[in-house]
């Protein structure tokens, strides 16, 4: 699958076939359902880490929020959660996969179009992240928790979510194309 290219050693190894990677991803997601009785999720872990951090800074503020305090000050520590550990695992697995394929970039690399400025790309990255943070809380999950997990369960709302994600992405793509040019 990943052959060593001796002629141009500096070049990254090719990605796997998307179908093979998808099949592997599907097996992992199935294992998650069978072992944990639940699918995968990413944004929930982010929410908890963000709440933990905010709680360290200002615990009274978190206490004043009805919904947040229930998560941050529950019976179990806010970070002792499947989603948080899953997210940690994603980082470890992602790093292992990237480094073993020679794809880890020198830290600070900003992926962007040849003529796009770093500033534009980083600003869009942050604002896009901000939007996704809010959106994932509104929808009770993101591409992992809703589209992949709920999608494979054939949950109605998750399919609506998935269609909406693609609709939103295609609708806005034209307006943010400059970062890739």
């Amino acid at each position: 699958m990943t052959h060593t290219n001796n002629i141009t050693p500096a070049k990254d190894k090719p990605y796997w076939s998307p179908y093979l990677a998808g099949f592997g991803l599907g097996l992992i997601l199935l294992a998650s359902h069978l072992l944990l009785g639940n699918g995968l999720g990413a944004s929930g872990g982010f929410g908890r880490i963000a709440l933990f951090t905010a709680d360290q800074v200002n615990s009274d503020y978190i206490d004043s929020l009805d919904h947040a305090s229930k998560i941050a000050h529950g019976s179990r520590h806010v970070l002792m959660d499947n989603l948080v550990f899953g997210l940690l695992g994603v980082a470890i697995g992602g790093f292992f996969a990237a480094i073993s394929a020679g794809r880890v970039k020198p830290f600070g690399t900003v992926e962007r179009g040849p003529t796009a400025t770093k500033r534009r790309r980083l600003l869009l990255a942050f604002v896009g992240g901000l939007l996704m943070g809010v959106a994932s809380r509104i929808a009770r999950g993101c591409t992992s928790g809703q589209a992949l997990s709920g999608g494979s369960q054939l949950a109605l709302g998750s399919w609506a979510f998935m269609m909406a994600v693609f609709a939103g992405g295609f609708a806005l793509a034209y307006f943010v194309r400059r970062q890739w040019k």
């Binding site: 995968l40 982010f46 470890i92 990237a98 992926e111 959106a135």
Partner: peptide, 30 residues
């Protein structure tokens, strides 16, 4: 509505929440 907003965010950010972690693990500042 959340899906639509997430789609907007996805195309702006170039990552969705799960993949952004992999992006960080691959050394990307964005």
């Amino acid at each position: 509505i959340g899906g639509l907003l997430l789609g907007f965010g996805f195309v702006m950010a170039g990552y969705c929440p799960g993949t952004s972690v992999v992006g960080v693990a691959s050394g990307r500042l964005d």
